Amino acid sequence: MIETTSPASEFVALHAELRDVTRDLLARTGPGGSVQPVVAARQGWLGLEVPEEFDGAGATFAESAVVLREWGRAVAVGSYPSAVLAVGTCLALEPEPARDQLLRDLAAGERTVAVALTADAGACDATVPPFRLRYSGGRLTLSGRAEFVSDLPRADRLLLVAADPHGLPVVVSVAADTVGIVPRPLLDSTRSFGGIVADELAVPPDSIQHFIGDPVAAVGQLHDRAALTIACDSLGLSAAVLDATVAYAGTRTQFGRPIGTFQAVKHACADMLVRLTVSRHLVGAAVREVAAAAPGAGIAVAMAKSHACAAAVDLAGKAMQLHGGYGYTWDSGIHRYLERATLNRALYGTPAAQRRRISARYGAAIQQSGSTEKDSRR
């Protein structure tokens, strides 16, 4: 079953092949295995959305989502999710030589780029950039901070979303060693995060890159992409823990028979499948919306992010419970999924923040409908 496309999609076979190849390679690394950028580039993952003129495949986010899901299933270690966000950021910028070269470098795995979208890891409001630009003493300076930036410790290039002197969002491209980086130790050992601190950092004018079209809308779309990237990862790890639990329940015996024959275990596994199925449909719908750049993609992303990430934590916890004491050991690996799912839940908008976003949207629609009805009665 292809989770990221409709059954009628002409790309079903392509996605199935991409999924199978990705799953096979990641399985060889083992749970929590590391995938180097050069390997990801050789597989074509890094250049999936990069235009062909820049040595990429010219695909869409729907193809990246297939790899992201398998990335979560394998709890893989590497910078691929950050590369997906970096490529999306570059594609949202006006074409110019530096941007074009960065796209080529990303596709070839020659650069690791970290993108700082928001100051708060749990926020889903992308209207306030974490950095600001202003003129000081005749020079352009950058100030601000961003917490929990993915792959920051290993990045050599940073793309920072900032408000220009006129208050409009832009992207500032700087070398990683020019800003203050604060390590952020995490329980999740499969990923690395760090904080960025910039205080009146002098930046050259040619480091400022502008968005295509409405910059505020573009930043919102990037934030949706980041949130959906995490939702895809959570969907993959949810599927993995369900598979592992069902397999364990079929081999672990108690009172002379597999524990999977007990009604309580059956019901628990069935509940896990229901949560996973809902996540699959919500994430699939959001992926299609983002890939098509649909106007209402933000709400679909909010629904997918809030449900898939919350469900992943619940499923990993239930899997650990059904594995008994074995679930807490390094041999089972279930704890890796719980650690990763817990962090995913907090990134790019917590479930509570995403639900507030959804309620605000529909609340405004209901209010507008009520006003229209009153006007019609007059």
Rank of each mutant, 00 (worst) to 15 (best):
L338G: 04
Y362C: 06
K318S: 13
I334R: 02
V313P: 01
S332I: 10
K318N: 08
E339Q: 15
Q354D: 12
Y328K: 12
Y326H: 09
S369L: 06
Y326N: 01
A316Y: 05
Y337W: 10
A364Q: 11
G349A: 05
Y337M: 11
A353Y: 00
L347I: 13
L338M: 09
S371D: 02
I334V: 13
Y348H: 14
S332E: 07
A365Y: 09
R357G: 10
A365N: 02
A341V: 11
A365Q: 07
T342C: 04
A365T: 08
S359K: 00
A316W: 04
R355S: 02
D331L: 12
A312N: 02
A316H: 08
A360V: 09
Y362I: 12
T350H: 12
A341T: 04
T372S: 14
A319I: 06
G363E: 08
R336K: 02
C309R: 04
G317S: 13
N344H: 10
A310V: 01
L338S: 07
K318P: 07
A312I: 09
M320K: 02
A312M: 05
E339S: 14
Y337K: 03
A353L: 01
G325P: 00
A365I: 12
T342F: 00
Y362T: 11
R336Y: 01
H323M: 14
A310S: 14
Y328N: 13
I366F: 06
M320D: 01
T350M: 15
R357N: 10
Q354P: 03
I358P: 02
Y362V: 12
T350F: 13
P351Y: 09
S332A: 15
R357C: 13
R356V: 01
R357W: 12
A346H: 07
E339N: 15
V313K: 01
A312Y: 03
Y337T: 06
T342N: 03
I334L: 15
